Simulated scan of single mutants.
Amino acid sequence: METHNLSPLRKGIIGVQFLFVAFGATVLVPLLVGLDPATALFVAGVGTLIFHLVTKGIVPIYLGSSFAFIAPMIKATELYGLPGTIFGLIGVAIVYFLMSAFVKWRGIQFIQRLFPPVVIGPVIILIGISLSSTGVNMAKENWVLALISLAVAVAVSIYAKGLLKLIPVFCGIIAGYVAAFLFYEIDFSVVREAAWFSLPQFVFPQFSWQAVVFMIPVAIAPVIEHIGDVYVVNTVTGKDFVKDPGLHRTFLGDGLACLFSSFVGGPPVTTYSEVTGAMVLTKVYNPQVIRVAAVAAILFSVIGKVSALLKSIPNAVLGGIMLLLFGTIACAGISNMIHNRTDLSDTRNIVIVSLTLTIGIGGAVLTWGNFTLSGIGLAAITGVLLNLILPQKQKSL
């Protein structure tokens, strides 16, 4: 239902519920890459409002921190420093802008030809697998806390119902945090000293074209995720947002949101399917409610004690969640290929998938002067090029 007749209070309550669904995932990304979680909430809120402005305010989509960039941001920070990495995120916006222009010019078929499931599937698998060692290293700081967080997250994802089923990450973090409070020590001094109201800790970019080139290939997976989420929202609402306002506008809105994020030191944002799931459960599809969630995120971002509390979460708690989360990302890549019936008896497809995975997992590096391309970025480009170069299997008449 469109729910234009909802009272302002009812819209506010549902909007905060939607933010609650997206909250855990949104703040987890900055906690893992060394950014202020308050900044992530801020850019998620502002980015969502930018998206709605560009898409005529008719597409009920919420933008939050993208998990696809956790591993690349950690690696890029080692290579170019955090300010350089933040500048590199401009490359993500560039990809979205190009996709917007291409869709406007040639239609969605062009993107489907460039990034078929045989390319996207292994790239998504790599995003999950490349993070696995980070999750294990964080979890082993305290395996008891890690396993408590993991067990609760698994139990909620399997047995919970309604809105609770959409926030297993959030529930796992809360359970681990409570266990740490009861049986171990948590340093609350930072929370006590934090101001009730304070601006997020913005990190301003420092020019690094190498970081931009490093980030550009990583944006391939979120581009496909964006398309899929728009089609899911179409199905949920019974409308065709690919035609009106158009996929080129949704790409542009997402790109501008990522560009804003790169200016203030937030992680790249992407469409959040968790909130779409919440819309299905509540039967509320009104974009105004999504904008309420965005405003609520901005308000939470300036409550200093919230950010300080999030930073006090033990690494082991986050590590336990990561064990499940990053494996789930890898499974999403496998599911993508299965759902699209990728034929792995076809030698061409086997070559694309195997080389994409081995180059990404093996840590291959391409160096040319000061230019370096490695990891997921190099693997993604390899998959795209192989898909374009290798001949298609001839169909029998």
Score class of each variant (00 low, 15 high):
126 L>Q: 05
41 L>K: 04
106 R>K: 15
339 H>E: 12
2 E>L: 12
122 P>C: 11
61 I>D: 02
205 P>C: 07
202 F>G: 00
61 I>A: 14
95 V>R: 04
180 A>M: 11
110 F>G: 03
373 L>T: 02
41 L>G: 03
18 F>A: 00
40 A>I: 02
89 L>F: 14
164 L>N: 06
85 T>M: 12
199 L>E: 03
118 V>S: 01
149 S>F: 09
2 E>N: 11
286 N>Y: 08
105 W>I: 09
26 T>C: 09
57 G>H: 08
232 V>F: 08
267 P>I: 06
325 L>R: 00
276 T>C: 06
22 A>M: 14
348 R>H: 04
394 Q>I: 09
329 I>Y: 04
223 V>A: 14
359 I>T: 06
165 K>Y: 00
169 V>L: 15
276 T>P: 01
195 A>W: 01
331 C>K: 15
138 M>G: 04
71 A>H: 07
184 Y>N: 09
133 S>G: 00
170 F>M: 14
213 V>S: 00
11 K>M: 15
295 V>F: 04
5 N>F: 09
204 F>A: 07
301 S>L: 02
37 P>R: 04
277 G>N: 07
385 L>Y: 09
123 V>G: 01
245 P>V: 08
83 P>T: 11
365 V>M: 04
311 K>S: 01
161 K>S: 10
195 A>L: 12
264 V>F: 12
394 Q>A: 09
374 S>G: 00
48 T>V: 10
35 L>F: 13
59 V>K: 04
258 C>V: 12
115 F>E: 08
205 P>L: 06
347 T>M: 10
105 W>L: 14
132 S>F: 15
227 I>C: 04
393 K>D: 11
89 L>V: 01
36 D>H: 02
86 I>G: 08
268 P>N: 03
272 Y>D: 03
358 T>P: 00
387 N>S: 12
298 I>R: 01
228 G>D: 11
48 T>E: 09
75 K>N: 06
157 S>M: 13
232 V>K: 14
28 L>T: 14
33 V>E: 01
289 V>P: 01
356 T>W: 07
78 E>L: 07
235 T>N: 13
82 L>H: 00
101 A>V: 05
395 K>G: 02
349 N>G: 10
140 K>H: 05
380 A>K: 05
213 V>T: 04
153 A>H: 05
175 A>Q: 06
213 V>E: 00
371 F>S: 01
247 L>R: 01
123 V>F: 11
66 S>H: 08
168 P>D: 12
253 G>L: 10
397 L>I: 13
217 P>Q: 04
374 S>K: 05
182 L>H: 03
75 K>P: 00
289 V>H: 01
302 V>Y: 10
181 F>S: 15
180 A>E: 08
302 V>A: 11
300 F>W: 08
372 T>F: 02
4 H>R: 13
176 G>T: 04
22 A>R: 08
397 L>T: 14
61 I>N: 05
65 S>Y: 07
312 S>G: 02
174 I>T: 10
382 T>S: 10
73 M>Q: 09
389 I>T: 13
251 F>I: 08
160 A>N: 10
14 I>Y: 13
342 T>D: 03
374 S>D: 09
163 L>I: 15
35 L>Q: 07
164 L>W: 10
55 T>S: 15
273 S>A: 13
317 V>K: 10
169 V>P: 03
27 V>S: 05
